[in-house]
Amino acid sequence: MHMRVHTGEKPFICGECGNRFAHQGNLKKHIRVHTGEKPFICGECGKRFAKQGNLKDHMRVHTGEKPFMCGECGKKCTTQTDLKKHIRVHTGEKPFVCDCGKRFNQIWHLKRHTTVHTGEKPFSCGECGKRFTTQGDHRKHMRVHTGERPYICGECGKRFAQQGNLKYHMTVHTGEKHFICGECGKKCTTQTDLKKHIRVHTGEKPFASGDCEKGFTTQRNLKKHMGTVKNLAVDRVLNKLSLFN
């Protein structure tokens, strides 16, 4: 059997797909791809696997063991496959290529990107029917319906549905202002605040009053204006009534 390593002989052939193997044991393992057989069961959670090696890798989810370490940064990984994926961060290798030429270091990054071209949104919300490109985006959206807020501020205890919202909130405590105006150099806490500020330079007023068509740079200013208009209207009515008394 060992000599087949040198001769390249692969006498065991899969009757389903024609794939060839040097050892009968490897053919038996391969056959499970076609039969769907998963004889190896996790004693912790009941998940089943076609290969014993896959079960061993999975068990580390429960034990927390991470035996594979990155030689560059010391990061520990659960499986050798995860380590190989991580190494690409350091090497810059991007083996997964889209038809448009864009390259990615992870296959799931490529899959997510291809939806830009196909427009496919396979993940649908069971509550409102809204569709999403990725399962991650779908999970985030579901928090709108469940009210779940898993991200907690360590400073004040405020909770958030999205990690990005927590990051923005943290700048309230740290005073960080990463977003800088290219026109005047003003620093803003969030990208949203920077967008609002930019309107000072562009003159853009996207919020218009339905009563007088006056435009405003922010929704807050529009609401303030609408309150003023409402108060003036009430005053006019009261003045008219006073004339009849």
Rank of each mutant, 00 (worst) to 15 (best):
I87P: 00
A233C: 10
H30N: 10
Q80R: 13
T114F: 06
D99F: 08
I152L: 15
A233F: 06
E72S: 01
F179V: 05
L222N: 09
D193T: 02
T217F: 02
G15W: 00
H23G: 01
F68Y: 15
R20W: 01
P150L: 14
L194M: 02
H141N: 08
M226G: 07
Q80D: 09
V89I: 15
D137E: 13
I87K: 02
E44N: 02
G36K: 07
V234K: 15
H86W: 03
E72W: 00
M69F: 02
F216C: 05
D57Q: 12
G119K: 07
R4V: 04
F40W: 06
V144S: 05
T190C: 04
P95H: 12
R20T: 13
G147M: 14
A161G: 13
T81Y: 08
M142G: 04
A208Y: 01
T189Q: 13
R103A: 00
V116Y: 05
H145Q: 05
S209N: 08
R159I: 01
F68A: 02
K121N: 07
K121I: 02
N245Y: 11
F216Q: 10
I31P: 02
R149W: 06
M59V: 09
G71Q: 01
V5R: 14
R149I: 14
Q191G: 03
T202M: 10
C153T: 13
